[in-house]
């Protein structure tokens, strides 16, 4: 199952890319996707390591920290560092 991953702001700088494709087992959760991304882009630990620093968005909606939603083929996940609009 392939999903699209988007990186923004500090996450983009740490990953060194704006976008990536992740291949995950069927039924994986966003948390599992994040674990895989941390293995592929270890520098991301800088922002993910601190509790509550980063959240994930699934198909343009924020996910709760402990969400267990199963991902689907073609889903779009975004790594959202603390926001600073305005």
């Amino acid at each position: 199952m392939k999903i699209k991953v988007l990186f923004f702001a500090r996450a983009r700088e740490l990953a060194g890319t704006t976008e990536a494709e992740a291949d995950l087992p069927e039924g994986s959760t966003a948390k599992e996707a994040m674990q895989m991304l941390l293995e592929k882009y270890p520098d991301l630990r800088e922002i993910e390591g601190e509790e509550g620093k980063c959240v994930l968005a699934l198909n343009q909606e924020y996910l709760e920290k402990n969400a267990t939603t199963a991902l689907k083929e073609g889903d779009e996940i975004a790594i959202i560092p603390p926001i600073s609009g305005g």
């Binding site: 923004f8 702001a9 500090r10 959240v55 968005a57 909606e61 924020y62 709760e64 975004a78 959202i80 560092p81 603390p82 926001i83 600073s84 609009g85 305005g86």
Partner: peptide, 26 residues
């Protein structure tokens, strides 16, 4: 809650800002 980020550039450095009211949830 709007996913927008601001980077400030100073003499000799830059930093991604964080809103105190940042509440990224539904």
């Amino acid at each position: 809650r709007v996913p927008i980020w601001k980077k400030e550039f100073y003499e000799g450095g830059d930093v991604w800002k964080e809103n105190a009211e940042s509440r990224q949830s539904t």
